[in-house]
Simulated assay, not measured.
Amino acid sequence: MCGGRGTRLDSDVEKPLYQIGGRPMLDRVRGALADSHIEAVSHVVSSHTLQTRDHLDHDVIEAPGDGYVADLQYALERSDPPILTVATDLPLLDGAAVDRVLDRHDTGSLTVAVPAACKRRLGVSIGTTMAVDGETVAPSGINIVAEDGEDETIVIDDERFAVNVNHPSDAAVAEALLQ
């Protein structure tokens, strides 16, 4: 998912092209997927990310740009489940982390969440939260969407899933953790 403008980053570049450690976040996530057991990747862009679309060389789905959920739904309607969805703002993701999610999937959809306490400990922003087994958690930005089976939420206390870069302060944390 690479269709967001990144207005909260207060940058002149689109969010997927925002650099962490000298590389666009999009390229970092693409590298993680390439280093995982994923066999095929499609990039969901929008009218808000024309430079990102130009940065990509293939496998692009052009969504309407009506927001993350609407664009995700648009892409899902054009794909065959199960589908791993990954937000571009996870620059610490690596192949082993992606495979950890894939290994946890059996059937149904899988939501990966991180403890809100982990995000607070790291000093990164916390958006949406929910309760899982009495613990306050935040969606990580990586999920598996399937048509059949029971839906499951797993909680992983791991900085690779916890650092979503939405603000300059989040970018600073990601930069520090890459050192």
Results as ranks from 00 to 15, higher is better:
residue 143 N to G: 01
residue 70 A to H: 05
residue 29 V to C: 12
residue 47 S to W: 02
residue 57 D to S: 15
residue 25 M to Y: 06
residue 125 S to G: 11
residue 85 T to A: 15
residue 133 D to E: 15
residue 85 T to W: 15
residue 11 S to F: 10
residue 49 T to N: 11
residue 86 V to F: 07
residue 2 C to E: 11
residue 68 Y to K: 04
residue 25 M to D: 12
residue 57 D to R: 15
residue 99 D to I: 05
residue 62 E to F: 13
residue 167 H to V: 05
residue 161 F to D: 00
residue 160 R to L: 02
residue 126 I to A: 09
residue 58 H to P: 07
residue 107 T to C: 07
residue 42 S to Q: 07
residue 10 D to E: 14
residue 170 D to A: 12
residue 157 D to A: 06
residue 164 N to Q: 01
residue 7 T to W: 00
residue 125 S to H: 11
residue 140 S to W: 01
residue 3 G to Y: 05
residue 75 A to G: 14
residue 137 V to M: 00
residue 175 E to N: 11
residue 142 I to R: 07
residue 111 T to H: 09
residue 104 R to Q: 10
residue 11 S to I: 06
residue 99 D to T: 08
residue 113 A to W: 04
residue 161 F to E: 00
residue 100 R to A: 14
residue 146 A to Y: 07
residue 57 D to I: 14
residue 86 V to L: 07
residue 59 D to K: 13
residue 137 V to G: 08
residue 119 K to V: 10
residue 30 R to E: 12
residue 10 D to P: 00
residue 146 A to C: 03
residue 74 Y to I: 02
residue 162 A to N: 05
residue 75 A to R: 10
residue 18 Y to M: 02
residue 63 A to T: 11
residue 32 A to F: 03
residue 53 R to P: 12
residue 105 H to I: 00
residue 104 R to N: 08
residue 65 G to L: 03
residue 10 D to N: 13
residue 140 S to T: 09
residue 105 H to D: 00
residue 91 P to G: 03
residue 175 E to W: 00
residue 153 T to L: 03
residue 171 A to E: 08
residue 75 A to C: 11
residue 19 Q to P: 02
residue 56 L to P: 11
residue 132 V to G: 05
residue 106 D to E: 13
residue 132 V to S: 05
residue 178 L to V: 00
residue 36 S to M: 12
residue 145 V to R: 15
residue 119 K to I: 10
residue 99 D to A: 10
residue 91 P to K: 03
residue 45 V to C: 14
residue 8 R to V: 00
residue 112 V to I: 11
residue 160 R to C: 07
residue 78 R to F: 11
residue 1 M to P: 05
residue 56 L to T: 14
residue 83 I to T: 15
residue 177 L to V: 09
residue 134 G to T: 06
residue 120 R to F: 01
residue 103 D to T: 13
residue 171 A to M: 04
residue 103 D to F: 13
residue 125 S to F: 09
residue 10 D to T: 11
residue 16 P to L: 04
residue 173 V to P: 08
residue 62 E to C: 15
residue 106 D to H: 14
residue 134 G to V: 09
residue 106 D to K: 08
residue 120 R to G: 04
residue 155 V to F: 10
residue 15 K to L: 08
residue 89 D to H: 12
residue 169 S to L: 12
residue 90 L to I: 03
residue 174 A to H: 02
residue 120 R to E: 08
residue 10 D to V: 06
